[in-house]
Design a protein around this nucleic acid. Sequence first.
DNA 1: CGGAATCTTGACGACGGTCAACGCTGGTGG
DNA 2: CCACCAGCGTTGACCGTCGTCAAGATTCCG
Lengths: 213, 213
Amino acid sequence: MRQIIEERTGSHSRHPASSEPHIAHMRFTAHATVLHEGDPARRIMEVVEGAVMLTKLLPDGRRQVVELLGPGDVFGLAACDVYACSAETLTAAIITTHERGALDRDPTLAARLLRRFEAQLCAMHSHALVLGRMSALERVAFFLLRLTPESVVGSTLHLSMTRQEIADFLGLTLETVSRAFSELKRRGLVALLRADEVKIHDHGSMRRLAGAA
Amino acid sequence: MRQIIEERTGSHSRHPASSEPHIAHMRFTAHATVLHEGDPARRIMEVVEGAVMLTKLLPDGRRQVVELLGPGDVFGLAACDVYACSAETLTAAIITTHERGALDRDPTLAARLLRRFEAQLCAMHSHALVLGRMSALERVAFFLLRLTPESVVGSTLHLSMTRQEIADFLGLTLETVSRAFSELKRRGLVALLRADEVKIHDHGSMRRLAGAA
DNA sequence: CGGAATCTTGACGACGGTCAACGCTGGTGG
DNA sequence: CCACCAGCGTTGACCGTCGTCAAGATTCCG
């Protein structure tokens, strides 16, 4: 168990003249649990800085990482009145929260979250295609491209996830993920500087593998 | 090719004193294509009545049904400026559309769509767990329960999808779906009256198979 | 330097995909 | 009215991808 929670509720700072009195900025270390699947869903969360993953568990312990979140992304959702996913930080992160009631009172906030929900829903649609129809190699290629912003095309990409976490995201086992990395390396599409540092050499072939997504 | 489009743009009716002049209600037959992945994303759609499925395609033709929609559900989303998914009706359906700009102008509409997006995002999270971590039998059990509203517990459930469509939804092949149905029947969990009419006998075992979701 | 955690690689097996034949059902036309 | 045909579903045999189990390799840290 390495998710030691160290939840310095950093700047709980209510600016004297803040227009949003119930906002709480929280600072988390890497590998901290932010919230638990099944807990009562009080607030909606938003990533300000860092990376967060959402996970779901089956009764027998099988795990799926359902979403990877970055700055601006929203989580803490609920179909009924409890959180549908657990959330863990992948890196150090800053998270802000919104009262659920604020959505009705603050149209600006609602409009922003709406736009973000749309983007996340589209990302989930892509992810369904990956999980339902792609081979192991294709999934890993897709994963690497997804983590590559246009700025980092030539340079080296840092994965802040273990093979197990990547596997749980892609619906594979850690061994299969490892084999896929090796195969991509063998084919000259990527270079593995370290286990968690990848350089993409053949961007075109990678895109083709990932289904030109 | 059976998606014959018969798109009687039924009540394009602008009520004399309507507050939403750009609303268009459209009536579709079953198996009609409502919109195409890749087309310019002009409007946001909402299911009023009937069932709609959203699909994504890989360049080589592999297909994934990413979402099943019923009344109230929203589609026609776009990460950039084109639709991310195609949409086809499963049954006869009535669909209404909203101008994208209306979301900023109409806070009531925005609040309603926000709530619906949240529900659909949660459904996608469950679906990711299904696609990533469940066996074929579990997937089919999950699928059948998902289609069973509490009202239809004792009675018979009508599937308005072919085996191929179910397979594309669950990330399987049509043969595997067929085998899973037969296996559920063999175990006495369901009865197959016809290929598209199912009665669930052992609801408890089904829930256990589906991961008590 | 040593030990724990993570990653890689190999051997093997199972689940589900592929290919193929057959059955059922509903619609059309003779 | 019945026969035929087309589309969909079922079942079987076989095979490939990926999961499982296990043994090393590597990295990181004290």
